[in-house]
Design a binder for these strands. Structure first.
Lengths: 207, 207
DNA sequence: AACCCTACCAAGCATTTGCTTGGTTTCGGG
DNA sequence: CCCGAAACCAAGCAAATGCTTGGTAGGGTT
């Protein structure tokens, strides 16, 4: 069944399906949440995929909600740290915008399940107190993009007549919704996609 | 079962919450499906919103699935008729592209619930035989955009080095995902949004 | 008055859901 | 050989879910 117990060391392997049984189960849950949505994934689905009974999951986790929580929080912490680094950099607005796009597609590449869960279930989860931070992160994300766009307009890098709010929505939507079709290791890499997107965004598709 | 036998008078009112009780209930169901997703909307939710008991819904409809079906089919029939008209027109590729974008945002304006349901639940519903037509419509939609883009490249209206498949995804995603934030009667009209989007898409946001 | 027809209620059934409880297996360290 | 911790099973409970069944209220037609 398991094949987990490594006699030596117990060193963290950081990659793949996770090193502890707990992390394996979390990875499985994340995949299912991303595929079928949080509410449409039952604890029995998760247990079946892991080859155990549903009750056994509660040896590892308090609740189904704890599982999403543990998936989303570290992911967002990591992502927003990168955004902050970009905002604090010395590059011009255009370079920062490109960097933010790149970082986002990188997140889709490396944490597709977390991104998908946030995209599909944030609204629903946000209605519970426990997940109030989701709305905050949303506002924070808006802040990142809007400030970058405003800086771009101010410094003359972007069109002066740009509707910043509308443009923000277009960027946000197009970037994150890519999680629906992008698959790591198939076809274009995330840097390819980011590059192509930045090109369209900045210069359009017209001849 | 069928109804429809209105001898005289009882003219269709076409607008608002629907003229027959049946249409009212369908509108309520559509709103809830769009807000919470198909699977996460219970027949009791719908009945509560309509002020009746859940069992009473089955006087009007065979099943919950029949309700989505009746919402999606007419909507898609109408939408694709418009796409076909655009494809058959004599305009150049750029004008056709703009028209297709406009028609799409118009659909979001006039049938937001149907669009949202299709966006959020098509994957899940598509796994049932009954909703096989959803995948067909998806392919058909792809055909529309890809052929327009290819025509644009061929006739020199669009950049010759354009990745048509990637661009199709960007357009599709950005257009339809707008259903998440666009609200009819609030702020920009759907024509405003379509215009702004076409501008970004064709010419970019750079100065 | 007799009749339908539409719209609904009241009650419930079988299944699914998240989660609980108490017990069992496995395995390395002492 | 015993121990303890981690991982799991077996069984079930209360609530929610889609749907069924048999009945009723009210209006219009004849």
């Amino acid at each position: 069944m398991s094949a987990a117990s490594t006699p030596e060391s117990e060193e963290p392997r950081t990659s793949g399906e996770g090193r502890t049984r707990r992390e394996q189960l979390l990875a499985i849950a994340g995949r299912l949440f991303a595929e079928k949505g949080f509410r449409n994934t039952t604890v029995r689905d998760i247990a079946d995929a892991a080859g155990i009974l549903s009750g056994s999951l509660y040896h590892h986790f308090d609740s189904k909600e704890s599982m999403v929580d543990e998936l989303l929080v570290p992911f967002q912490t990591e992502l927003f740290a990168k955004y902050d680094a970009i905002l604090a950099s010395e590059d011009d607005a255009r370079a920062k915008l490109e960097a933010a796009v790149r970082v986002s597609f990188e997140a889709i590449d490396q944490h597709p399940h977390e991104v998908a869960i946030f995209q599909n279930d944030a609204d629903h989860l946000g209605s519970f107190e426990r997940f109030g931070y989701l709305a905050e992160r949303n506002a924070q994300s808006r802040q990142v993009w809007v400030s970058l766009l405003e800086e771009g307009v101010r410094t003359g890098v972007l069109r002066p007549d740009l509707d910043v709010t509308l443009t923000y929505r277009f960027i946000r939507d197009t970037v994150w919704v890519a999680v629906r079709w992008y698959r790591a290791g198939k076809g274009l890499t995330h840097t390819d996609v980011a590059e192509a997107y930045v090109r369209i965004l900045l210069d359009g598709i017209a001849a």
